[in-house]
């Protein structure tokens, strides 16, 4: 006799549960974690370099680099001074909570204040997979064009921070900043935003100050949370 079993379960529920475990582990260790997402070439690794160089000596940093096959990005993060761990996704278009869980084993969390997870370069898939990080950061860049919020709403919607990189190119490429910002505002009103250039360093200070402030409030939250 055929019968129907009602389920109503999110298909990525297993990933979400693992992400929650990752988060609990990071919380226990007192590590603030960022998930850096962007299309290929937007400047994820350049931002990692700027961040690590800028906060060296103030924060102990680790980087997890998601890449299809190479270790080029992790090498750059390591050269900048972070403890870098490479995840080769073997062609998969995004990181998921399982991969991050494995990578967390490679990191000395007790000796880490800030963990940066550099996701696979892709403006579609990473936004669907929670990793357990505390803040999601999307990097847009001027040469990609001003229409990206309109074309990739899923990526712009659920991030905590939006960075517009390569602002040094604004005089040379057609990029209507008001149009871009209006799209962002529709999808993610009031999102914390930074405009900067990883090449010239313009605007990077404000981003570094934000991270420093976040780590302070993260620690304060943990200190006041009983049982942690």
């Amino acid at each position: 006799m055929p019968r129907t079993v009602r389920i109503v379960e999110k298909i990525l529920d297993a990933n979400d549960q693992l992400a929650a475990q990752n988060r609990a582990r990071l919380d226990r260790a007192g590590v603030l974690a960022l998930n850096l997402m962007a299309s290929p070439g937007a400047g994820k690794t350049s931002l990692v370099e700027r961040t690590v160089e800028g906060l060296k000596g103030r924060l102990r940093m680790a980087v997890i680099d998601g890449d299809l096959a190479t270790s080029l990005d992790a090498d750059r993060a390591a050269a900048a001074g972070a403890a870098a761990t490479q995840i080769n996704t073997g062609g998969q278009c995004h990181l998921d909570a399982v991969m991050v869980q494995d990578a967390l084993h490679e990191i000395d969390l007790a000796a880490t204040d800030l963990l940066i997870v550099e996701n696979v370069g892709n403006l579609v898939c990473p936004s669907s997979f929670a990793l357990g990080t505390h803040k999601s950061v999307l990097i847009a860049s001027v040469p990609e064009g001003d229409d990206k919020p309109y074309k990739y709403p899923g990526s712009y919607r659920n991030v905590d921070v939006l960075i517009l990189n390569k602002i040094d190119l604004l005089p040379y490429v057609p990029f209507r900043r008001d149009y871009f910002e209006r799209g962002v505002e529709m999808l993610n009103p009031g999102v914390c935003s930074f405009a900067l250039s990883c090449r010239t360093g313009e605007g990077v200070e404000a981003w570094l100050a934000w991270i420093a402030a976040e780590t302070v409030s993260f620690r304060a939250d943990r200190a006041s949370a009983p049982g942690r």
Binding site: M1, P2, R3, T4, V5, R6, I7, V8, E9, K10, I11, L12, S128
Partner: peptide
């Protein structure tokens, strides 16, 4: 939305 609503079984 992205969920499994129901399955039918024998």
């Amino acid at each position: 939305e992205f969920r499994l609503e129901a399955i039918e079984v024998e």
